[in-house]
């Protein structure tokens, strides 16, 4: 084995007719934050569940700290995990949730208070978890992941339901963990949440890795010929541009990302075609654009107006 903190190799798993994992392979090194991104249904959560020994793979292997997760005696002392933050029994208090977890790892009761303070949940810790907002559940889940002060952290969608202040907090928190030598794997279906904190990004779609690179490499790979277009009829604009040989993708926000031609050429194509537009901007590619480009063909559930790049 090499000394990667997380090593996933050739994972395959089928749920009935769906190939959930199709040769998933990547690794995470100590001292780094690795973003794990892809559209819903790409296999992120399944990979994490296999890593944690919750689901069984059909083929391949998944190791943490060089071992199978299930072989760890007090696993939360080595690996902290946030899975399904909403999954709490509603009548138990947040503090008592952490308490039983601490007991399961033979960790002292003092540690519960420490992680409650760490995530800023002290005012709510003695209330029933059923009344928590999703953001508070995420904080409780991160407190649980930090209980054993683990060397590896695996966080599935920690930004979900977080308020802006919480998102800023998590971003800073993850960076500080990596700075102290921890390996952090953080999944998200939104690339933007990872920009600025991830050292490495693993982009997945349809159960396999589409790209595994540093943020800079990814952005460079996308080139810098992005053109951002705003139009009242984005799908029509995209269709016209595609007929002219350009790549065009309609984003969720109704803008069109155009590739392969210059901003000048976009205007020349659209004007004679009678397509109205309010903005045409040449821009350097962002991580989000690269993501859309990579996952465009791998999205399982796409909006009807989206156009294949």
């Amino acid at each position: 084995m090499n000394d990667a903190s997380i090593e996933v190799s050739g994972l395959r798993k089928r749920f009935g007719p769906t190939q959930a994992l199709d040769g998933m392979t990547f690794s995470v090194a100590a001292g780094t934050v690795t973003g794990f991104v892809g559209p819903n249904g790409a296999g992120k959560s399944t990979t994490i569940r296999v890593l944690l020994g919750l689901d069984y793979q059909d083929e391949g292997h998944a190791l943490v700290c060089g071992q199978r997760y299930a072989a760890l005696k007090y696993p939360l002392r080595r690996v902290g995990a946030l899975v399904e933050a909403a999954a709490l029994q509603p009548s138990r208090t947040g503090r008592n949730h952490l308490l039983w977890l601490a007991r399961s790892q033979r960790l002292p009761t003092d540690r519960v208070k420490e992680v409650i303070d760490l995530v800023g949940l002290d005012s709510a810790a003695r209330r029933r978890a059923g009344g928590y907002s999703l953001g508070m559940r995420q904080r409780l889940g991160i407190a649980a992941a930090m209980l054993g002060d683990p060397e590896v952290l695996i966080l599935d969608e920690p930004f979900n339901g977080m308020d802006p202040e919480g998102i800023i907090w998590i971003r800073g928190f993850l960076r500080s963990l990596a700075a102290r030598g921890r390996a952090v794997l953080v999944s998200s279906h939104l690339m933007g949440e990872l920009q600025g904190i991830a050292d490495q990004v693993v982009v997945v779609g349809r159960g396999r890795v589409l790209a595994d690179a540093t943020v800079d490499e990814l952005v460079a790979r996308a080139g810098s010929d992005r053109v951002l277009l705003r139009s009242p009829t984005p799908s029509e604009a995209a269709a016209v541009l595609q007929r002219a040989g350009a790549r065009a993708t309609v984003t969720d926000r109704g803008t069109v990302i155009v590739g392969g031609i210059t901003a000048q050429r976009v205007v020349e194509v659209l004007s004679p075609a009678g397509v109205a537009f309010s903005e045409v901007t040449a821009q350097r590619a962002s991580l989000e654009d690269v993501y859309l480009q990579l996952t465009g063909g791998a999205t399982q559930y796409r909006a009807g107006t989206q156009v294949q790049p």
Partner: peptide
């Protein structure tokens, strides 16, 4: 869904 937390703590 808490069974996943239980089995993560005690595999």
């Amino acid at each position: 869904g808490m069974i996943r937390i239980t089995l993560t703590a005690m595999p």
